[in-house]
Design a protein around this nucleic acid. Structure first.
Lengths: 121, 121
DNA sequence: CCTATACTTCGTCATATAACGAAGTATACA
DNA sequence: TGTATACTTCGTTATATGACGAAGTATAGG
């Protein structure tokens, strides 16, 4: 029950659902998510840790960068079905479609320019 | 997105998930849910209205009694998939199994005795 | 080493949510 | 036409959550 509730709670925040769907095309690092969500780094980090604890994302550290991605096929069925459900339910949502375009844009950016998100504040 | 978030939020509370699963064997009236959940009538009523707004349950009024049931096949796909997901995820949960037994017990009770839940407080 | 970078953790604040009891509404029955 | 019943709505309170900035940690590069 706790596992299930953690997943449901993780999915009950718009920014977390957006972040999750942004990973549909492949892994992203935190600074890319910060740029697209327009939230403070600490906020995004917290959101990702909630998604991670629910097993809805995997994390991989490479040097200074932390990459997040969707779960693989080995993940619990409960998790995979949740991801499926989200994708079916909101793939056509206005915000999610716009975010898909953002992912393409941000993926092309130079990382130096991208991580300017830290310098803004 | 809002529709999806309403469903996710509705599913992120243990008592609401329990109530939802209690309806698996068929419709129940509010006083039966009050008895099984062990919560105040106003609390259960609020929970059911949240589930209802998310379209996760249907409501039918018959005389003084309000009956709640799971959605039928005409419900939005998003809703049906959510219900499926919950059922697959927690059907074997200890609490949910125990609740299943409670449903059988309560269904056999005389309504006069049952609605004593109002007289307790 | 020392500094910059890329996060994460912590502390704080404002808002959201779950619980309750009291009061309100709608229906059956005397 | 009261009165009891079966909820629902409202107001309050305690706790949970999401946002931020400041401080902490880990890694790369000079």
């Amino acid at each position: 029950m706790l596992i299930f509730l953690n997943i449901a709670k993780a999915l009950s925040d718009e920014n977390r659902v957006r972040a999750l769907m942004m990973l549909s095309r492949g892994e992203l690092c935190v600074c890319q998510l910060i740029e697209m969500l327009g939230l403070a780094p600490s906020t995004v980090s917290k959101h990702m840790s909630i998604l991670r604890q629910a097993r809805l994302v995997r994390a991989r550290k490479e040097g200074r960068w932390m990459y997040y991605s969707l779960p693989d096929e080995d993940a619990p069925r409960c998790v995979l079905e949740a991801v499926q459900w989200v994708q079916n339910a909101i793939a056509k949502d206005k915000q999610i479609v716009a975010d898909g375009k953002q992912v393409k844009r941000v993926s092309k950016l130079d990382r130096d320019k991208l991580c300017a998100c830290y310098k803004k504040g």
